[in-house]
């Protein structure tokens, strides 16, 4: 009975101990090269930068890979133009609406207003007010779209991003649109 636990402990010890045993290095072709270590193993630096390393250049006879066309400049342009036009429209209708309000205020005791005139000015003013709100909100939406497009482009170092962004971007960020990462050599 006492030999069985001892056998189990021994088996466990052997199994766990064997898990930590490194396999035997393959024999070097020449004992004089033993000091060079294992040339097939990757260092930790290589492992960390494995996916960040630039791809190997394609063969010379291979067809050129089509460059990915950025959508963000188009969205940015649409956003800026839309926000400008709609914002100008909102400003104009707002000024016109305010002018009608002032006209009402000035007409009460100077010139007078008939029911029809009052209703007409009031209706036009409310329409202009509604238009101001609608155009303003639309302009805001377009401006937000332009801002988002620019932000995405800046993040990806797209065409809208400034040059210094491409220089200071993390490695691998700015190659998609033809940019380069990392410190650049100053132009000579």
């Amino acid at each position: 009975m006492t030999t069985r636990p001892l056998a189990l402990v021994g088996l466990l010890a052997l199994s766990t101990a064997c898990a930590g045993v490194q396999p035997q290095l393959t024999a070097l072709p020449d004992q004089r090269l033993a000091s060079l270590g294992n040339l097939g193993a990757r260092s930790s630096f290589e492992i960390r930068t494995l996916y960040a390393a630039p791809e190997a250049p394609p063969p010379a006879d291979a067809p050129p890979k089509p460059r990915k066309r950025a959508v963000t400049p188009i969205l940015f342009t649409i956003g800026v133009v839309g926000a400008s036009l709609l914002g100008a429209g909102a400003f104009s209708t707002g000024v016109a609406s305010y002018g009608l309000r002032r006209r009402l205020d000035n007409s009460y005791f100077d010139g007078g207003l008939s029911y029809d005139e009052y209703d007409r000015i009031n209706t036009n003013g409310e329409r202009l007010s509604d238009a101001t709100w609608g155009l303003g909100i639309s302009a805001f939406a377009f401006a937000a779209m332009a801002l988002i497009a620019y932000s995405v482009d800046w993040q990806r170092c797209g065409p809208l991003a400034p040059k210094r962004r491409r220089v200071a971007a993390p490695p691998g960020r700015c190659e998609e649109f033809g940019g380069t990462s990392g410190p650049q050599q100053p132009a000579k």
């Binding site: 000024v95 609406s97 305010y98 002018g99 309000r101 202009l128 007010s129 101001t132 303003g136």
Partner: peptide, 8 residues
């Protein structure tokens, strides 16, 4: 201006 004019 928008607030003034928009709030007709």
């Amino acid at each position: 201006v928008g607030a003034l004019g928009g709030c007709f």
